[in-house]
Amino acid sequence: MDRLNARLGYLTALPITALLLLSFVAPLVVVAAFSIMPQKVFSLAHLPDFSAYGEILRQGYWRSLIWSLGMAIAATAILFVISWPLAFAMAKVYRRFTLVLTVGVVMTLFVSENIRLFGWVLTLMKGGLIEGYLRSWGFAGFDGLLYNVPVIVFGLVYVYFPFMLFPLAQGIAMVPDDAREAAVDLGASRWQLLREVELPLAAPGIVIGCLLCFVLSAGAIAESKLLGGQAVIVMGDEVETAFTYGQNWPLGAALAMVLIAIIGAVALFSVSRVDLDAMFGGRK
């Protein structure tokens, strides 16, 4: 009976599995297949070679990869630090105000990312909101705050803030107040409370928030283009130019595969370390 049940489980899962394979895995397979085609071809009807991957090593694309991953790590770390207190307040302190805050943060997502970033360009540029006002108040003018690496990280932090805040608040909401009170009663310091009770119990939310921010930041292009003046060339940009101006689909596909492999490995490793079912209300 148990075996029959197990088989029925697989069978009932079959239609949705097929749909998921078709919609998510098939495009990835096409990209993977293109990545092993000879360079500069536009169909999959060629004998595979790995020259596109060789090109990545030869032409120094690792530099873009390191910049993308490095900035994604920095943005994720900054986001975690600044979102934690706010997420804590949303989950444990604010009551009705949480709704106001949620609506406020979600509303920013209604406006396109490029337009929001362009708003920052107008704020940070020479003669913009900050430099212009300071100069008109008699301070010495300066060259604007754009076109460098820190401003790109700032852009990533700004754009992906909601993606850290909400999972984190959800994670913190899972920490039972009883557990915190018990820890304090038993003499835990604030630091011990955070490290030994709150962080481990909120881990699913932390992992989801960090993963979302890291994955999105690693593939982000607009922040580097609009705010950073391409002070560094990011991986997403390399993929885009390989497919367009480069007219080298296999190279673009190989670059994308490298990024997918790294991000996929990080995601699988992180997800395997926490009990996501607890967060989504599944089995305990």
């Binding site: 362009f118 360009v121 283009k225 609009l226 003046g229």
Partner: peptide, 11 residues
């Protein structure tokens, strides 16, 4: 700076 956006460049 580098940009593929003519508005950013004119600005």
């Amino acid at each position: 700076l580098l940009s593929d956006d003519l508005v950013a460049m004119n600005t």
